[in-house]
Protein backbone atom coordinates (compact mmCIF):
# COMPACT_ATOMS: atom_id res chain seq x y z
CA UNK A 1 0.00 0.00 0.00
CA UNK A 2 2.14 2.87 1.25
CA UNK A 3 5.44 1.29 0.34
CA UNK A 4 5.83 1.92 -3.35
CA UNK A 5 8.66 2.94 -5.60
CA UNK A 6 9.41 6.13 -3.72
CA UNK A 7 12.13 8.12 -5.42
CA UNK A 8 13.60 9.67 -2.27
CA UNK A 9 15.07 6.33 -1.20
CA UNK A 10 18.81 6.88 -1.63
CA UNK A 11 20.77 4.77 -4.08
CA UNK A 12 24.48 4.35 -3.38
CA UNK A 13 27.23 3.35 -5.77
CA UNK A 14 30.53 1.60 -5.09
CA UNK A 15 33.08 4.21 -3.98
CA UNK A 16 35.55 5.51 -6.54
CA UNK A 17 38.37 7.95 -5.93
CA UNK A 18 37.88 11.49 -7.23
CA UNK A 19 41.40 12.75 -7.74
CA UNK A 20 39.96 16.09 -8.89
CA UNK A 21 39.70 16.85 -5.17
CA UNK A 22 42.63 18.30 -3.19
CA UNK A 23 41.65 16.91 0.18
CA UNK A 24 40.10 13.55 0.89
CA UNK A 25 38.04 13.06 4.00
CA UNK A 26 36.98 9.48 4.66
CA UNK A 27 34.48 8.04 7.10
CA UNK A 28 33.80 4.37 7.67
CA UNK A 29 31.84 2.20 9.99
CA UNK A 30 32.65 -1.53 10.30
CA UNK A 31 32.88 -3.19 6.89
CA UNK A 32 32.99 0.24 5.22
CA UNK A 33 36.73 0.25 5.94
CA UNK A 34 37.22 -2.19 3.05
CA UNK A 35 35.68 0.31 0.62
CA UNK A 36 37.99 3.06 1.93
CA UNK A 37 41.02 0.80 1.40
CA UNK A 38 39.94 0.26 -2.19
CA UNK A 39 39.60 4.04 -2.77
CA UNK A 40 42.94 4.68 -1.09
CA UNK A 41 44.52 2.20 -3.49
CA UNK A 42 43.11 4.19 -6.39
CA UNK A 43 44.40 7.45 -4.94
CA UNK A 44 47.85 5.93 -4.34
CA UNK A 45 47.98 4.82 -7.98
CA UNK A 46 46.64 8.04 -9.54
CA UNK A 47 47.85 10.82 -7.23
CA UNK A 48 50.01 9.44 -4.38
CA UNK A 49 50.82 12.89 -3.00
CA UNK A 50 47.11 13.31 -2.20
CA UNK A 51 47.48 10.69 0.54
CA UNK A 52 49.13 13.43 2.61
CA UNK A 53 45.90 15.42 2.36
CA UNK A 54 43.77 12.46 3.36
CA UNK A 55 42.31 11.73 6.75
CA UNK A 56 40.11 8.89 7.94
CA UNK A 57 37.62 8.74 10.81
CA UNK A 58 36.61 5.20 11.77
CA UNK A 59 34.16 3.49 14.05
CA UNK A 60 34.33 -0.30 14.56
CA UNK A 61 30.63 -1.00 13.98
CA UNK A 62 28.67 -4.01 15.14
CA UNK A 63 31.33 -6.65 14.60
CA UNK A 64 34.33 -4.83 16.04
CA UNK A 65 36.63 -7.84 16.08
CA UNK A 66 36.25 -8.40 12.34
CA UNK A 67 37.47 -4.88 11.53
CA UNK A 68 40.03 -4.34 14.27
CA UNK A 69 42.96 -3.90 11.89
CA UNK A 70 41.32 -1.39 9.47
CA UNK A 71 43.12 1.60 10.98
CA UNK A 72 46.50 -0.10 10.72
CA UNK A 73 45.90 -1.08 7.10
CA UNK A 74 44.89 2.49 6.20
CA UNK A 75 48.07 3.70 7.91
CA UNK A 76 50.09 1.30 5.81
CA UNK A 77 48.70 2.74 2.55
CA UNK A 78 50.26 6.06 3.56
CA UNK A 79 47.55 7.92 5.46
CA UNK A 80 48.95 9.19 8.74
CA UNK A 81 45.83 10.92 10.04
CA UNK A 82 43.59 8.01 11.04
CA UNK A 83 41.33 8.36 14.07
CA UNK A 84 39.38 5.59 15.71
CA UNK A 85 36.20 6.28 17.72
CA UNK A 86 34.19 4.16 20.15
CA UNK A 87 30.82 5.07 18.69
CA UNK A 88 29.13 6.94 15.85
CA UNK A 89 28.14 9.90 18.05
CA UNK A 90 31.73 10.73 19.02
CA UNK A 91 32.89 10.24 15.43
CA UNK A 92 30.24 12.72 14.28
CA UNK A 93 31.27 15.26 16.91
CA UNK A 94 34.81 15.23 15.56
CA UNK A 95 33.52 15.15 11.98
CA UNK A 96 31.74 18.46 12.60
CA UNK A 97 34.92 20.16 13.80
CA UNK A 98 36.82 18.70 10.83
CA UNK A 99 34.19 20.04 8.40
CA UNK A 100 34.39 23.42 10.08
CA UNK A 101 38.10 23.69 9.29
CA UNK A 102 37.95 21.99 5.86
CA UNK A 103 38.53 23.89 2.64
CA UNK A 104 36.86 23.98 -0.76
CA UNK A 105 38.35 21.17 -2.80
CA UNK A 106 37.51 18.55 -0.17
CA UNK A 107 35.92 15.27 -1.22
CA UNK A 108 33.99 13.24 1.30
CA UNK A 109 33.82 9.45 1.14
CA UNK A 110 31.45 7.59 3.44
CA UNK A 111 31.20 3.82 3.69
CA UNK A 112 29.14 1.75 6.08
CA UNK A 113 25.55 1.04 7.04
CA UNK A 114 22.94 3.30 5.52
CA UNK A 115 22.09 4.97 8.83
CA UNK A 116 25.76 5.92 9.25
CA UNK A 117 25.90 7.32 5.71
CA UNK A 118 22.73 9.29 6.35
CA UNK A 119 24.04 10.88 9.56
CA UNK A 120 27.35 11.81 7.92
CA UNK A 121 25.60 13.29 4.87
CA UNK A 122 23.20 15.25 7.06
CA UNK A 123 26.19 17.01 8.63
CA UNK A 124 27.96 17.51 5.30
CA UNK A 125 24.77 19.07 3.93
CA UNK A 126 24.89 21.67 6.70
CA UNK A 127 28.26 22.68 5.29
CA UNK A 128 26.75 23.03 1.79
CA UNK A 129 28.58 20.00 0.44
CA UNK A 130 26.65 18.49 -2.45
CA UNK A 131 26.56 15.38 -4.61
CA UNK A 132 29.57 16.57 -6.59
CA UNK A 133 31.65 16.44 -3.40
CA UNK A 134 30.23 13.45 -1.54
CA UNK A 135 30.41 9.76 -2.41
CA UNK A 136 28.93 6.96 -0.37
CA UNK A 137 28.82 3.18 -0.45
CA UNK A 138 26.42 1.12 1.61
CA UNK A 139 27.97 -1.81 3.47
CA UNK A 140 26.55 -3.54 6.51
CA UNK A 141 23.16 -3.48 8.09
CA UNK A 142 20.26 -1.74 6.36
CA UNK A 143 18.55 -1.09 9.70
CA UNK A 144 16.76 2.23 9.48
CA UNK A 145 16.40 5.41 11.46
CA UNK A 146 12.65 6.09 11.47
CA UNK A 147 11.24 9.56 12.01
CA UNK A 148 7.79 9.61 13.55
CA UNK A 149 5.63 12.12 11.69
CA UNK A 150 3.34 12.35 14.74
CA UNK A 151 5.76 13.11 17.61
CA UNK A 152 8.98 13.81 15.64
CA UNK A 153 11.03 11.30 17.58
CA UNK A 154 13.56 9.28 15.62
CA UNK A 155 13.67 5.59 16.47
CA UNK A 156 17.06 4.01 15.83
CA UNK A 157 18.08 0.65 14.42
CA UNK A 158 14.73 -0.41 13.00
CA UNK A 159 14.82 -3.77 11.24
CA UNK A 160 11.10 -4.40 10.88
CA UNK A 161 8.35 -3.23 8.54
CA UNK A 162 6.39 -1.79 11.47
CA UNK A 163 7.87 -0.38 14.66
CA UNK A 164 6.71 0.92 17.99
CA UNK A 165 7.74 4.60 18.14
CA UNK A 166 10.32 5.27 20.86
CA UNK A 167 8.66 8.63 21.54
CA UNK A 168 4.88 8.18 21.44
CA UNK A 169 4.56 4.39 21.29
CA UNK A 170 2.35 4.56 18.23
CA UNK A 171 2.76 1.66 15.81
CA UNK A 172 4.44 3.08 12.71
CA UNK A 173 4.62 1.80 9.18
CA UNK A 174 8.19 2.30 7.93
CA UNK A 175 8.02 3.94 4.53
CA UNK A 176 10.67 4.26 1.81
CA UNK A 177 10.14 8.02 1.99
CA UNK A 178 13.58 9.30 3.04
CA UNK A 179 14.60 12.70 4.38
CA UNK A 180 18.21 13.74 3.91
CA UNK A 181 17.75 16.52 6.46
CA UNK A 182 16.55 14.12 9.14
CA UNK A 183 18.71 11.25 7.85
CA UNK A 184 15.69 9.05 8.48
CA UNK A 185 12.79 7.25 6.84
CA UNK A 186 9.28 8.43 7.53
CA UNK A 187 7.11 6.42 9.90
CA UNK A 188 3.34 6.90 9.90
CA UNK A 189 0.77 5.41 12.27
CA UNK A 190 -0.22 2.08 10.82
CA UNK A 191 -3.45 1.41 12.74
CA UNK A 192 -4.97 4.89 12.76
CA UNK A 193 -8.17 3.79 11.03
CA UNK A 194 -8.56 0.45 12.76
CA UNK A 195 -6.88 0.72 16.18
CA UNK A 196 -5.05 -2.43 17.18
CA UNK A 197 -5.20 -4.01 13.72
CA UNK A 198 -1.56 -4.46 12.81
CA UNK A 199 -0.09 -6.14 9.77
CA UNK A 200 2.29 -9.03 10.57
CA UNK A 201 5.66 -7.78 11.78
CA UNK A 202 8.51 -8.94 9.58
CA UNK A 203 12.26 -8.35 9.73
CA UNK A 204 13.03 -6.71 6.39
CA UNK A 205 15.91 -4.28 7.05
CA UNK A 206 18.72 -6.59 8.07
Amino acid sequence: MLITSIKSKPVYEPLRADVGGRYHLMLASGPGGEALLRVLGEIRDAAPQALQNTRALLVPGADAAAHSNTATRINEVGVTDVRLFDDVASLLTTFRTVLDESLMGTRLYVAGPESFIGLAMKLALEFDMNKDEIRAEELGTSARRVYCVHCRTTTEDVKTNIVNCAGCQRWLLVRDHYSRRHAAYMGVMVDAEAPGELPPMREVYL
Binding site: R22, L99, D100, S102, L103, M104, G105, T106, F127, D128, M129
Partner: peptide, 9 residues
Amino acid sequence: LLSRQPLGT
Protein backbone atom coordinates in the same frame (compact mmCIF):
# COMPACT_ATOMS: atom_id res chain seq x y z
CA LEU B 1 42.37 33.13 -3.02
CA LEU B 2 40.64 29.96 -4.18
CA SER B 3 42.77 27.37 -2.35
CA ARG B 4 41.97 28.77 1.10
CA GLN B 5 38.18 29.07 1.15
CA PRO B 6 36.05 27.24 3.69
CA LEU B 7 33.67 24.47 2.68
CA GLY B 8 30.42 25.80 1.28
CA THR B 9 32.00 28.84 -0.42
